[in-house]
């Protein structure tokens, strides 16, 4: 049974010219758990993962597997399996030959090729040229590459992108199973909803910097509940709320008021003589707290 090691990002920093892609990022990923690495597109997730894997050189800081940099691992594919994007293939090569090239490079037995293709459900398409693969099949082939060395650590960049519903269900079970075997699983996504059913921990970054770290449940308590209130005359309602010193934003279903107290909002509307058409308390969902954290909350 492969043993997962911890992934350690330590004060890692990357600048491309004048732009800072990743800024002083530090966190640890534990074995036996699925960790979601979340953030909007362009937040620096892929750059961070590429630094972890030695493909991009950090400007400063280190990213290691139990203290060892990727390039210093004695058997990299046996320690870490990574799937980065769905396009790293020569279109004229068959899936089996594609994997065969890298089993040879890593000194792994050729039998691993068939094994991993079966494992990801591509056994029937092993001899097909990758150029004819669908996006979902390419994702699975990328995953097959990651599994070649039966690694203790899995690093997957947006593995759910492009999968059909059946594939999504499959990969969720797959991630859970990998972690249950004691492996370290780090999986990135720009959508919390994509991974929230399978992750134990979340690491959230925005604009290259860490904004939240903790178990998935920590997202629930982070956000205060809001009141959703609507009126045929939103302007008058808004004026009344403003007068009482409440802040709010305009959402699709009404005004989202930053207060936990529905009675207060009802009273204010009544006192101002504004008719209201709905009033309820909304417990912010995980997605809302996620969006609030990465700075893409409801602003109009």
């Amino acid at each position: 049974m492969p043993i997962g090691t911890t992934i350690e990002f330590s004060h890692i920093h990357k600048s491309f010219g004048a732009t800072t892609a990743v800024n002083d990022l530090s966190f640890t990923v534990e074995p036996g758990r699925v960790t979601g690495f979340l953030g909007p597109n362009g937040a620096g997730k892929t750059t961070s993962l590429r630094m972890l894997l030695g493909l991009v050189a950090p400007t400063s800081g280190t990213a290691t597997f139990g203290g060892i940099r990727y390039r210093d691992l004695p058997q990299p594919l046996h320690t870490v399996g990574a799937a980065l994007e769905a396009a790293s293939f020569h279109p004229g090569r068959s899936a089996a030959n594609h994997l065969g090239v890298y089993t040879r490079a890593a000194g792994l037995p050729r039998t691993r090729v068939t094994a991993v293709l079966e494992q990801v459900g591509l056994g029937a398409h092993a001899e097909q040229r990758v150029g004819g693969y669908s996006l979902g099949m390419r994702q699975r082939l990328g995953l097959a590459y990651a599994l070649l060395g039966d690694p203790g650590v899995l690093v997957l960049d947006e593995p759910i992108n492009g999968l059909d519903p059946e594939g999504i269900k499959w990969i969720r079970g797959f991630l859970r199973a990998m972690a249950a075997e004691g492996r370290t699983v780090l999986v990135s996504s720009h959508l919390l909803s994509e991974v929230q059913q399978s992750v134990d921990d979340v690491v959230i970054i925005a604009r290259g910097a860490l904004v939240h770290l903790g178990p998935l449940s920590s997202l629930e308590t982070d956000a205060a509940p809001q009141i959703v209130v609507d009126s045929p005359d939103r302007e008058a309602l808004g004026a009344a709320l403003r007068q009482a010193g409440l802040t709010f934003s305009v959402g699709r279903t009404g005004l989202l008021v930053a207060t936990p107290d529905p009675a207060l909002v009802g009273h204010l509307a009544f006192a101002a003589g504004v008719e209201i058409s709905s009033l309820h308390r909304q417990k912010a969902g995980l997605e809302d707290s996620f969006l609030a954290l990465v700075g893409e909350g409801h602003t109009l």
């Binding site: 980065l84 790293s88 020569h90």
Partner: peptide, 18 residues
């Protein structure tokens, strides 16, 4: 150049980091 064009440098350097 095919390694650059088809982005196969990624799996190549993952399998052989040197």
């Amino acid at each position: 150049t095919g390694e650059f064009r088809h982005q196969t440098l990624t799996p190549t350097f993952l399998a052989s980091p040197r």
